[in-house]
């Protein structure tokens, strides 16, 4: 009896292991292993061909060269700003989809948020370039109605980068927000009005606290996507974009300096982890609440 139970539970465990194997393999081979290698590579210095030594020179270089850490800080600040902007725009949209509109319109609106993601990020970013460039749609329109008397260049500045980043990440903010706001019982909002609240106090005291896990998870995803984005800042910001991912690209591909590129990659990982951790602490959320 006890023997067969043991066999059974053993079989159950084996089944679980087999089910989890693809995930574990993926995590180990594609995430953990490369990062270990990245760390090891970042902690060595090339002495001569095929000869390396342990050294912190790559990290020292990062802190002594103002361009590097200026880009680093700028990327972090811009990413935080883009995340906040996405939240500010995404929240009313999500609230409208989840709580105001009913029936078919709800699905249609949700689909409209999704449709841009049927084309690749490259195409979407080119879309913005067509709109914003000197010979683009908006520039021509402004000239045609007489607001501007010559071509207007709207690309290659921070605002253009911001537009692209917010646009690219919007869906990742709207989806968790809609799902968390959907779970907010209408009677909680009605009770708020009944208890003497107005739109502002109810949003502040009832809707936002309820939506906090969704806000946190949306912000984490958007922040990480933005921080690690290469394409959008590069295309819309041009040479002046100064995004940290571009520095990593340059180290690896242009300078062929894998040691320094690895160090930068590791520093980016540290940066996103620290900022997400601080964000969770400030909003009094835990990672398990946010993901679960």
């Amino acid at each position: 009896m006890s023997n067969s139970a043991a066999v059974k539970s053993g079989g159950f465990r084996l089944g679980l292991l087999l089910l989890a194997l693809p995930l574990l393999l993926w995590l180990f081979l594609l995430v953990i292993l490369p990062h270990i290698d990245l760390l090891l590579v970042s902690l060595r210095e090339r002495i001569s061909y095929g000869k390396y030594e342990f050294s912190l020179i790559n990290y020292v270089e990062f802190f002594t060269e103002p361009l590097y850490w200026n880009t680093y800080v700028r990327t972090a600040v811009m990413s935080i700003f883009a995340t906040v902007l996405t939240l500010i725009i995404g929240f009313p949209v999500s609230y409208y989809i989840a709580k105001v509109i009913r029936g078919k319109g709800k699905n249609a609106l949700f689909l409209m948020c999704l449709i841009p993601f049927w084309v690749s990020e490259l195409v979407r970013t080119f879309g913005w370039m067509i709109l914003l460039r000197e010979s683009g749609v908006i520039s021509n329109l402004l000239q045609w109605i007489g607001v501007a008397d010559g071509p207007v260049e709207m690309l290659y500045n921070d605002a253009a980068i911001m537009v692209g980043l917010v646009y690219t990440s919007m869906l990742f903010m709207v989806v968790p927000l809609v799902s968390v706001l959907d779970s907010l019982d209408d009677s909680l909002i009605e009770a708020g009005y009944d208890l003497g609240g107005n739109a502002f106090t109810i949003t502040r005291d009832i809707v936002v606290p309820h939506a906090m896990p969704g806000i946190a998870s949306g912000c984490i995803v958007v922040f990480m996507l933005t921080l690690g984005n290469y394409l959008t800042p590069n295309l819309l910001g041009g040479k002046d974009s100064l995004w940290f991912t571009e520095q990593i690209y340059t180290q690896f591909i242009t300078r062929f300096n894998w040691e320094s590129g690895s160090a930068f990659g590791f520093l980016l990982l540290v940066l996103s982890s620290v900022i997400v951790w601080v964000g969770l602490k400030l909003s009094k959320q835990t990672l398990s609440q946010t993901v679960g």
């Binding site: 019982d185 009677s187 009005y193 208890l195 003497g196 005291d205 009832i206």
Partner: peptide, 20 residues
């Protein structure tokens, strides 16, 4: 008039208590 100005208080079927 809005609910707040009517001098009423409602007890909801679902209780509508704030979980947080």
């Amino acid at each position: 008039k809005s609910p707040r100005d009517r001098g009423i208080a409602m007890v909801f079927q679902s209780y509508a208590l704030y979980p947080h």
